[in-house]
Design a protein around this nucleic acid. Structure first.
Length: 279
DNA sequence: CGGCCAACCTGTGCGC
DNA sequence: TGCGCACAGGTTGGCC
């Protein structure tokens, strides 16, 4: 499911109810997700206060008062659902509800992930930057280190299709299949172009387009949070209008363009593009 | 190291 | 109605 904007939306949704609250329950209902769930999962969390809810790329970071950091990834199908005790008793855990939390503030938080590509592991706050999941990642689109000089440099030494390079979390952290398709469409760059053949001008445009796409998606997520805030429900999966993703066979939305959106498969993922607008 | 592919899982939707 | 297949928003490990 989630790329950086969706994870940021989840973070904003859970931060207000978790920060300052104490876990009175933390159960792992199976031994593993993509990787084993820590043996001491419950013991390490119960009775402790959450200091802050952060995010690094697509990873949620729950900072505990004692320096422990719970790293959560939603994989492809992960969802977090919050229930408030004022809405009645929380439901019995359903199928694929793998993690079950309760806070002293009367909040139940469930992590549901049918495909189990998600994960939960622990780290120490002081060594978080060196954590094997965190350390290898490139800059996020909204970070200072992400600029056209950096991107030009990265493209220059890679001949793989630009689509693959933009999906590489070591190059840019946070983009996934949808937003890569959207960014390439807006930039007018065909997804199979070798990265080292993308011009500096195109790279400069792409840099700011990637920021735009991510900023707009975060804003769209924020607007869904407003509706969400009142009621119990799922976080992170919001309907956003895409200009090219998922629109195979439909008319290109560029004014005056009469072409149909095409779909090809790259690196075992679907790429959607307009053959006229993305030469 | 760069690049490519298979693998990890389950659910859903579509064509026959 | 049932069956089989294609596909799904992510990441990694192994191989050349």
């Amino acid at each position: 499911m989630p790329e950086l904007p969706e994870v940021e939306t989840v973070r904003r949704g859970i931060a207000p109810v978790l920060e300052g609250a104490r876990f009175i329950r933390a159960d792992a209902r199976r031994p593993d997700l993509r990787v084993p769930i820590p043996e001491n999962f419950s013991k390490a969390l119960v009775g402790k206060r959450v200091r802050r809810v952060g995010r690094a790329s697509k990873y949620l970071l729950i900072y505990m008062e004692d320096g422990l950091v719970m790293i959560l990834h939603l994989g492809m199908s992960g969802k977090i659902t919050l229930y408030n005790e004022t809405g009645g008793p929380p439901p019995a855990p359903a199928k694929h509800d793998h993690l079950h939390f309760e806070t002293d503030g009367g909040i139940t938080m469930l992590f549901n992930d049918p495909r189990r590509f998600g994960l939960v592991v622990f780290s120490d706050e002081v060594t978080l930057d060196q954590h094997p999941l965190i350390a290898p990642m490139g800059p996020e689109p909204l970070a200072n280190g992400f600029n056209s000089v950096y991107l030009t440099e990265q493209f220059a030494r890679r001949k793989a299709p630009i689509k693959n390079i933009l999906l590489d979390q070591k190059v840019i952290a946070g983009l996934g299949n949808i937003y890569v398709c959207e960014a390439l469409y807006r930039a007018g760059v065909h997804p199979v172009r070798p990265a080292n053949q993308v011009t500096e001008k195109e790279t400069a445009a792409l840099t700011s387009i990637i920021r735009d796409v991510i900023n707009e998606a975060i804003a769209a997520g924020g607007s869904t949070l407003k509706d969400y805030a009142q009621v119990d429900g799922e976080l992170g999966y919001f309907q956003h209008r895409f200009r090219v993703y998922g629109r195979e066979g439909e008319l290109c939305l560029t004014k005056g363009c009469k072409s149909e959106i095409e779909r090809i498969v790259q690196a075992a993922r679907s790429s959607f593009f307009c053959p006229s607008c993305q030469p």
